[in-house]
């Protein structure tokens, strides 16, 4: 019993620590606020004027689910940089040498990521509402969509902390950031997949980002959900996204916990 209580307490302290750090970094907060706002406005209006998404659909309605997912993918880089910085400075080593629950650091880290991501998502949704995006399918489906987004965020966050402890250096982690670009670009975030050349199209169809975006479009009732004969992940986007999340968690939760619990 005390072990579990200590475990939760330790995890909560790590969350507390990360949120304190954020409070001391007004720059990071400003970035976290500005980014989604700038995204919605820039992509919504710049691309929106040029990209046809079919049947006179509103491009910003098409775009918002994509931007939600893109925000999540970019958050991964931020959290990887943070963990890499802590690892490089030896803070992670100090924590690893302390008598705290073995899983406290990874759970605390992913927990605080989830809190930050929730705030970002709320902000982004509010901006979306301002520029004309709507969820059309009622409260249950809307809640399911946000739930799915947060689950995806949580799963991605475990990848981020694992990579962060491997990289061990803020600068290197920051350089790896742009590698997430293809993940969002070779997908249906900005443009429909149908027009892509065969190889890209194949990659985009099996990209977890595409599945998540399609799932959100379906749940929000936004345009861009494929009709008729789509590949399996896009025909069953909610299931595919859940499967991706389960897979990522199954691989990276044990890997990350190992990284904190075992000597290496």
């Amino acid at each position: 019993m005390t072990t579990i209580r200590h475990g939760l307490g330790d995890g909560a302290m790590i969350v507390h620590r990360n949120l304190l750090q954020l409070r001391h970094s007004p720059g990071a907060i400003a970035g976290a606020v500005m980014f989604p706002l700038a995204f919605v406005v820039l992509f919504g209006y710049v691309f929106g004027s040029a990209i046809p998404v079919g049947q006179g659909a509103n491009y910003r309605e098409y775009l918002m689910p994509g931007l939600f997912v893109m925000g999540i993918v970019m958050g991964v880089t931020a959290s990887m940089i943070e963990v890499a910085g802590d690892t490089g400075l030896g803070v992670m080593d100090r924590l690893r040498s302390m008598p705290i629950a073995r899983s406290a650091v990874p759970f605390g880290q992913t927990g605080s990521d989830l809190i930050v991501a929730t705030a970002t998502l709320v902000l982004m949704a509010a901006t979306g509402l301002l520029v004309g995006w709507r969820a059309h399918n009622g409260i249950a489906a809307t809640a399911a969509a946000f739930g799915l987004l947060l689950l995806l965020q949580y799963a991605m966050s475990w990848i981020a902390i694992y990579l962060g402890t491997l990289v061990k250096n803020k600068e290197t982690a920051a350089k790896l950031g742009p590698l997430t670009m293809p993940l969002t670009m070779i997908s249906n975030v900005f443009v429909p997949i149908d027009g892509m050349p065969a190889v890209l199209r194949f990659l985009a169809e099996w990209n977890p980002v595409s599945a998540a975006v399609t799932a959100c479009r379906e749940l929000f009732g936004n345009p861009g959900v494929p009709t008729g004969d789509a590949t399996w992940p896009l025909a069953h986007p909610v299931l595919a996204t859940l499967a991706w999340c389960a897979f990522i968690l199954a691989v990276f939760v044990p890997l990350s916990i190992r990284r904190f619990a075992r000597p290496y």
């Binding site: 302290m13 620590r17 750090q21 001391h24 970094s25 802590d86 400075l89 803070v91 100090r94 302390m98």
Partner: peptide
């Protein structure tokens, strides 16, 4: 090499480590 949270104050660093103990 000093293993401290650079963004936090000295007091916060010690407080957090204390709580973790």
């Amino acid at each position: 090499h000093a293993a401290l949270d650079e963004t936090l104050t000295g007091r916060e660093n010690l407080y957090l480590f204390g709580r973790l103990f």
